[in-house]
Amino acid sequence: MELLEFARGPALKVALVVFCFGVLWRLVGTVLLRYHRHLSEPRDGYFKAFMLGLLVGGSRSWPHKQYIKRTGYGEALGYAYHIGLFIVILFFAPHVLFIKSLFGVSWPTLPSGIVTIIAVLTFTLLLAVLFRRLAHRVLRRLSNFDDYFSWFVTTLVIVTGLMATAHFGARYETLLAWHILSFDLLLIWYPFGKLMHAFYIFPSRIINGYFLARKGAPS
């Protein structure tokens, strides 16, 4: 079996199994945890509290006016590379074909040249993100292996993908195999590291928002 076949076959299979197992384990396990019992009546009723919770899910995704000078740069970086990642993942023709082969759904794609430019920009932004983490005194102390490794697997997928597109460094089938293998690695790491934030971020914001709204805190 050649490397590419291994990457697209058994490795992908194992990675998907680990991914699905891990994500469901952590999601279900977290959702079903015991909550503090709130004995007070919600101020404006359950429904309004829940709606305000949803609102918080959105409003907390935007920098707070008061802190924008301090957090703006980091948030802008974060937004930019996330958008870049989404475009590259969802609108590159081979990626859509990959998704189609797994789930049978597909959608229109962007020209490869545009996607490549966005991927290069995204890679640059990821470098900036790493630099910021290392340069920021507080952030550096907050960071652990998980932060760096999650950054590494994400960047690795982009770098190998760019190399495959440019046919740079090795033969195409080898580069493509590396790209898929690095994605397999990302899938395996996903549920157990901070990449899991993709599943946690909005539910946790909404639930927090809901509890705060019950108490009548402004959203």
Binding site: L12, F21, K100
Partner: peptide, 21 residues
């Protein structure tokens, strides 16, 4: 297509999701 996964079916992943849950 070359980009397609070669895993046959998603059933094992689905089962894994069930076990995970």
């Amino acid at each position: 297509p070359l980009a397609a996964g070669l895993i046959g079916s998603l059933a094992p992943a689905g089962e894994a999701a069930g076990v995970g849950a």
